[in-house]
Computed example of a mutant assay.
Amino acid sequence: MRVALHALGIGHGARPEVVRAVARAAEAHGFARLWAGEHVVLVDAPVSRYPYSDDGRIAVPSDADWLDPLLTLSFAAAVTERIGLATGVLLLPEHRPVVVAKQAATLDVLSAGRLTLGVGIGWSADEFAALGVPFAGRGRRTEEYLAAMRAVWRDDVATFEGEFTRFRDIRVNPKPVRERRVPVVMGGNGDAALRRAVTLADGWYGFNLSTAQALERASVLAGLCAARRRPTDALTVAVALTDATPAVLPELARAGVTEVVVVGAPPGTPDEAARWVGGLAAHWLNGGHSIKAT
C-alpha cells in the first residue's frame, strides 16, 4: 500500500517556498506521490452543487489562491528527484487536448517519467461557462480528448478526427518517457467515472470518500474489471478518505486499493510546513507499509 500527499497548490500551499518545503519533505519522508488538483475558475455564488461534500459546497474559499497543477508539479519536480507527481484532477474537457498532451509530455520528460495524469470531467457549470466550453457532453469530450492525446504521444506524425477535435499530420514533441505514454487515472466517484477508469484509463482516483464508501466503490470497480476481463491489479486505485487511519490500510489493500492519498493544508512557513509533513509521515508511514514512487 502506497501513501501519497495531496497538499500543493491552494492557500498556503500556493506559496513557492511552501511548495518547495512540502515537496522536499514528502520525498525525504517516503511519501509515494504528490497530488495537485485544479480549478481554473471559482465563483462566489455557484450554480452547481459540489459533488464531494454532504452540503454541496467546496471547502476552498472562492478568493483563495489556486495554482495550475501542471505548473505546480513542474516546480515540485525541479526540487525533487524520486517522488511521483499526479494531477488530482485536471479538468480535461476545459482544455485543448493537443496543448495538454504537450504540457504533460514536457513535465514527464523534465521529471524523468514521474508524472501520472489524473483527469476528470468537471462539475461546475459556472466554470465551463466562463471558459466558453459547453457543459453538456463533457463526458464524451473527455473520452475523445484522451484518445487524441494518446495519438499525439504515440505517433511521430499524428492524425485524429473526432466530434470535438481534429488535426492532421502534426508533430508534437517531446514524447513521454515511458513507451510514449503518460499513465492516466480517471477521477470521480460515480459509476460513469468507474466505467471510464476500467475502459479508458490506467487507474481510478476517488476523492472525499469514507472508508466504507471507498470499499464499496472498489468492489464495483472490481466487478467492472471482471466484466471487461481486465485484471484488477492492472489498475492504480487511489482514494482520498474523510475518515482514514493507518489501521484501515490492510482492509483497503485487500479490496484492491493501491494508494491512500492524505489530503491536508500545510502551514504558512517552510519550516512549519516541513515539520507538518514529518508529522504526517510519523502517523502514516511508520507502520511498515511498502512505499514507493510510481
Rank of each mutant, 00 (worst) to 15 (best):
W153Q: 05
R254N: 13
G162P: 11
L280W: 10
G122W: 06
A218L: 06
R24Q: 14
P270L: 14
E216N: 12
A218W: 06
V277G: 14
A265E: 09
R166N: 08
D44I: 02
R154W: 07
N286I: 04
D156H: 02
G187F: 08
G187L: 02
R2S: 06
Y50P: 12
L221H: 05
T72Q: 05
S290I: 00
T87S: 04
A21V: 08
V237S: 11
V47E: 14
V260G: 12
V198E: 07
V43D: 11
A21K: 02
P46H: 12
T245W: 02
E251M: 09
F75V: 03
T232Q: 11
G190F: 00
A77V: 03
R140M: 07
W35T: 01
R171W: 07
V248W: 04
D55Q: 07
I170R: 01
W204I: 15
R171L: 15
G37S: 13
A21F: 02
V47L: 12
A105N: 02
Q103A: 15
G256D: 06
L117R: 04
G279M: 10
V43P: 07
I10D: 03
L249E: 11
L117T: 03
G206W: 00
V152N: 03
L117H: 01
G203A: 04
A282P: 10
S48E: 12
A244Y: 01
L280F: 11
Y205D: 06
R154V: 09
A226G: 10
G122N: 05
A281R: 03
A273N: 04
T106G: 14
V18T: 05
R217C: 14
A201W: 15
A101W: 10
A193H: 12
P266V: 04
H95R: 12
G30P: 13
G264C: 14
A59G: 15
S111C: 09
